[in-house]
């Protein structure tokens, strides 16, 4: 009897969640679009800067290189809530950068995700480009060509691995909740993204809405993982 009640509750919940997804009402759509917008922009900015920096680091030996690598490796496990807290203190009205008036806007959420994702992309890209350079260094040296062309070759040769790293970074950004809820404030129609919305709807008891957002998030994550598998199998 109890099992039947639980099962009918779960079935109803899932059906209602799927109905929400297929209904695609404006508020649901806005949340998904904002989530993708914030994560994609943060990942693109982070990827461009990280790959540019690591292509330089991979071919150069300089004082402190090991220390910088160690720092970025450690920052991979940076707690998002701490990032959110530091940004909140920095950008709040009495903070150092309070005059920029960025708190509770999508831009500060992009900054937060950029800070969380960048150490991941830098650490993984550096490892990937270091490995590739150790394989190609003699050949590239023998060409007696410019440093810029060596870096371009290195990045181009690692393009599929780097794409996988970028997708990994984006998955991290999309699933992040701690920092964006602090700096974004989870404001409806302004800074509400999928993860913060799930937190809110769950606390309100709107489980079907929370689940529909959860399912959407999983679909996006699975799609990205399928993309990674496709790249690995077909292109590498």
């Amino acid at each position: 009897m109890y099992v039947n009640v639980v099962l009918s509750f779960l079935v109803e919940l899932v059906l209602q969640s799927l109905a929400n997804i297929f209904e695609l009402n404006n508020s649901f759509k806005d949340v998904v679009i904002l989530s993708l917008y914030v994560s994609v922009i943060a990942t693109i900015i982070s990827s461009v800067i990280s790959i540019y920096l690591t292509s330089y680091m991979a071919i150069k030996n300089f004082f402190g290189k090991d220390a910088i690598t160690l720092i970025f490796n450690s920052l991979m496990s940076l707690p998002p809530v701490v990032v959110g807290l530091i940004l909140y203190i920095t950008f709040s009205s009495s903070g150092v950068l309070g005059f920029m008036d960025l708190l509770y806007s999508p831009n500060i959420m992009i900054i937060a995700q950029f800070i969380i994702v960048t150490p991941i992309i830098i650490s993984l890209s550096l490892k990937c480009l270091n490995d590739r350079y150790s394989l190609l260094s003699d050949y590239l040296f023998s060409l007696n060509t410019s440093e810029n062309k060596i870096r371009r070759t290195l990045v181009y040769e690692s393009r599929y691995d780097l794409l996988i790293i970028v997708i990994t970074g984006m998955s991290r950004a999309l699933s992040e909740v701690g920092a964006v809820i602090i700096v974004g404030g989870n404001i409806d129609n302004l800074t509400r993204v999928m993860t913060t919305s799930i937190v809110l709807e769950t606390s309100r008891g709107e489980l079907s809405l929370a689940l529909s957002l959860g399912i959407s998030l999983i679909v996006i994550a699975v799609t990205m993982n399928l993309l990674i598998s496709y790249i690995k199998n077909k292109l590498l």
């Binding site: 003699d138 050949y139 023998s142 007696n144 070759t153």
Partner: peptide
């Protein structure tokens, strides 16, 4: 100058 290595590496 050009150099041919004992075990040449090629780009992918």
């Amino acid at each position: 100058l050009s150099y041919v290595f004992q075990n040449s590496v090629f780009l992918n």
